[in-house]
Design a protein around this nucleic acid. Structure first.
Length: 213
DNA sequence: CTCTACGTAGTCCGTCAATT
DNA sequence: AATTGACGGACTACGTAGAG
């Protein structure tokens, strides 16, 4: 907030030009906070392509769609150049999402922002697609409750094994991984007769696939 | 056209650790 | 000691995709 008020940051790319001493002088901001902020900014310069797309805030493009786009096209340039017809080819993308994406990249202002970010040192990384076996391919998992590991971790582990991780339980859900204090989703899983696995079972499963936690 | 599955987005809450 | 904010999670409303 302060940064905007003091006109230090007018555009996203300005963030990368901030300096340490300046930050430390702000209210409620000591040197430690300043260092941390800078370190985080530095890290944010090299996002995987899907994160970058997500971060652009295109309408209807959340994490899942962003990943689908990144996977399908493989590079930002190709997405930039894609027509609506090509965008519709991507799984989970229909005409509405395609037109949003297309329109976004046609907007001169958005192209400018991207350009500025690049000049400020932003570089995206390609998706790491490990050609591992995918024993869980075709399965849809839903996570609920508190797990002994961060949710995102469990999710990437599952995805690495080929599973899809969905947000809500339905009849199509293969397995529900229930941690402690699981709520509505666990009940729904039970009422639908979906297989439920607890964390212990999950860990055992991972081990049987040789996944290292 | 209708139904189902799922993604998006917003809000709200509790916990916890770090800083000021 | 008090404040913050990061983080993880739940729930909900709404919209889109896609199949029948």
């Amino acid at each position: 907030v302060q940064l905007v008020e003091k006109n230090l940051v007018r555009a996203v790319a300005d963030l990368y030009r901030l300096e340490r001493e300046l930050l430390a002088g702000l209210e409620r901001m000591g040197e430690k906070s300043a260092d941390k902020l800078l370190a985080q900014l530095e890290r944010s310069k090299t996002p995987p392509l899907d994160r970058l797309l997500y971060a652009l805030g295109i309408r209807e493009v959340g994490e899942v769609t962003a990943t689908a786009l990144a996977r399908h096209f493989g590079s930002l340039d190709r997405i930039l150049a894609a027509g609506e017809e090509e965008l519709v080819e991507v799984p989970d993308v229909g005409p509405v999402v395609a037109s949003h994406v297309h329109a976004f990249f046609r907007e001169p202002h958005n192209r400018d922002v991207l350009e500025q970010l690049e000049q400020a040192g932003l570089r995206w990384r390609p998706l790491e697609t490990h050609g591992r076996e995918q024993p869980l391919a075709g399965q849809t998992w839903v996570l609920t409750g508190a797990l002994g590991m961060p949710r995102a971790r469990a999710k990437t582990l599952l995805e690495a094994l080929g599973a899809k991780v969905a947000g809500s339980v339905s009849a199509k859900t293969s397995v529900v991984l229930a941690g402690a204090e699981a709520g509505a989703k666990l009940r729904k899983a039970e009422s639908l007769g979906v297989r439920v696995i607890d964390e212990e079972g999950f860990r055992a499963l991972l081990e049987s696939y040789g996944t290292v936690l």
